[in-house]
Design a binder for these strands. Structure first.
Lengths: 333, 333
DNA sequence: GGATATTGTGCAATCGTTTGTATTTTTGCG
DNA sequence: CGCAAAAATACAAACGATTGCACAATATCC
């Protein structure tokens, strides 16, 4: 492995100058910088990140903590984040919380041990507040929250426009003529889900419709939960459902089909997140698209920006767009 | 940040003993080890990975290079690998090649710069041989290949039983009574795809059917390519297609539907990889399931095993299972 | 032209952990 | 009890890059 000392020797200068030249310090002459760069190139020099991290106290690495990596949404966020981090010479260590707080803490400890410069996190659904986050991250580390955030934790937050998204999705159902619209709402400990429920309610009341607590389904955010909620919704006389997730929407769709309801004629469905399968199933599922790749880019960008102590990023809101497909589009009515 | 020196001081011993105690060296007395562990716990010690990496010349990190992280298959491999690495105190740095060689090289350089202990890689489709891999990885780094491997590169390889899988998938179609079965074969520069084509051919010839080069479709492994291949296959009189990927199978399904063919009655389809959407679309898509999570676990396990210089892992073959769904199941014939 | 800025380099310490070798302590045994 | 062997610990030198401070070289000004 070639080191800066090797380069220094070959040029008859000292390691300090080489280091400064390579890191673009204004304290070296243009000509020496060129010479150093050429020598580094020629000799195949690659910075030893471990040594660099040790000396600087920070690694050129950011940790990304997500509930699960194999979720379309999160893997795209990661992809987006990496595309930005790459340009700035940062690597990413990916950690999964598997939706539970203890794994989240474990991940934070690993990252702290690695002296990461920043952490991008979307909270585990089990975490109801951010206390454990603040305890397990040290002062200098930049914390960026995305998607599932706690407003009690300061710092940049990249979120979807959950309120607006749910509002639009619900309004769309109303405009399609559905009369009794339930919602699969998720967990209220999550601000994202709470905002969606609020948007749903606002849409109903703006359009002069009644809000009925009986057809608000809290809890499970997986397909099975959606299936159960869908069945109850149908029992209660709903003719449509807005769901805060596509898996739950899929469950509701399954319930509707089993009960012999035609979708969208008899029963309308709009989900959230625009999972890959949503466009592919029959009937295709309408969904409020988030923009995970873009959110990842924004999160990484927020980290980069925050590296300068003066510049502070606040909340970045990424829009949600209605992708109207078959499950909610009554062509003739 | 508390260091081993702090612990040493508080116990009236030296850092070297603390280091050895914490790393489980047999050279420290049981009682001191206990004392050190307790002090470390009490003082909230966490090893500085950067310092450790620098001194040892190796980081407790493995790099995972995949074409794309947002592919169901790869994100599950990563999940599996992490589940194992975690138990051994290793972290993972994830890199994407975006299917091209230059990004693959870039990733290798980043990883080398980070002195990773190992690299788990599934090659970019653009890479037709492993020369650039060997050039950009240093001697001591353990290289484990999975899924898309080059047999020219020595070391552990975790692969699906591609030959057998394609063989079974094809045989299934034959047994369902399809008479002219095409194949969407992918790129022959990939050994995985080549093996699948071979399995397909073997199945045909074992079952006394003719192999027709006209209905072997090379190239594109995305939906559009499948769509085009599907159309040509139909033109050529095929009544079924075996596809080496689910996205291409989806394209073929789309083509069949557009041409007014009923699936599976008039046209049978079996894909490969069992993507999430495959079970959800209509008709549901039969597919040769790989076991990505398991492959990830095996790859990580191979790395761990290879840490001991004596133990060498060779080739690990993970079976592929036929998931027969609607697209290939003629209930009445 | 000489004193003072300005710019470019060198010196040397440091980050925290690991590990080969030296030294001390303990143990076992005649 | 004394001595050798074994066990436990201490010492000190790395690993490679960074950076505050000192110093040298050059430019600038009156």
């Amino acid at each position: 492995m070639v080191t800066i000392s090797d380069i220094a020797k070959s040029l008859g200068i000292t390691p300090s100058t080489v280091s400064r030249a390579l890191s673009g310090s204004p304290r070296v002459k243009e000509s020496t910088r060129k010479a150093v760069e050429k020598a580094a190139e020629r000799m195949g020099y690659e910075r030893d990140e471990a040594a660099s991290s040790l000396r600087r106290g920070r690694a050129k690495v950011v940790g990304i903590i997500v509930p699960r990596i194999n979720r379309e949404f999160f893997s795209n966020v990661i992809g987006g984040a990496e595309s930005v981090l790459d340009n700035y010479g940062y690597s990413a260590i990916i950690c999964q919380s598997h939706e539970n707080t203890s794994d989240e803490i474990k991940a934070l400890k690993t990252l702290r041990s690695n002296r990461v410069a920043g952490v991008l996190i979307s909270h585990a659904i089990e975490s109801t507040n951010g206390a454990h986050i603040l305890e397990n991250i040290d002062q200098g580390t930049i914390l960026v929250q995305f998607d599932r955030v706690f407003s009690s934790i300061p710092g940049p937050k990249i979120i979807s426009d959950n309120f607006r998204g749910a509002y639009e999705g619900t309004r769309h159902l109303i405009e399609q003529g559905y009369k009794k619209i339930g919602i699969i709402a998720g967990y209220m400990s999550s601000e994202a889900y709470a905002a969606r429920l609020a948007g749903y309610k606002q849409a109903l009341s703006d359009m002069g419709m009644e809000i009925d607590d009986e057809i608000i389904f809290y809890g499970s955010i997986v397909q099975k939960g959606g299936y159960e909620a869908g069945n109850i919704a149908i029992d209660k006389g709903c003719d449509a459902i807005f769901s805060t997730g596509d898996y739950t929407a899929l469950g509701a769709l399954q319930a509707a089909k089993e009960r012999g309801l035609r979708v969208p004629e008899d029963f309308g469905i709009v989900g959230t997140a625009d999972e890959r399968f949503s466009a592919l199933i029959t009937p295709s599922l309408s969904s409020m698209a988030q923009h995970p790749y873009e959110m990842g880019r924004r999160a990484a960008q927020a980290f980069i920006t925050s590296l300068k102590p003066e510049a502070k990023v606040g909340e970045v809101v990424v829009p949600m767009d209605l992708i109207a497909r078959q499950s909610s589009t009554r062509t003739t009515i």
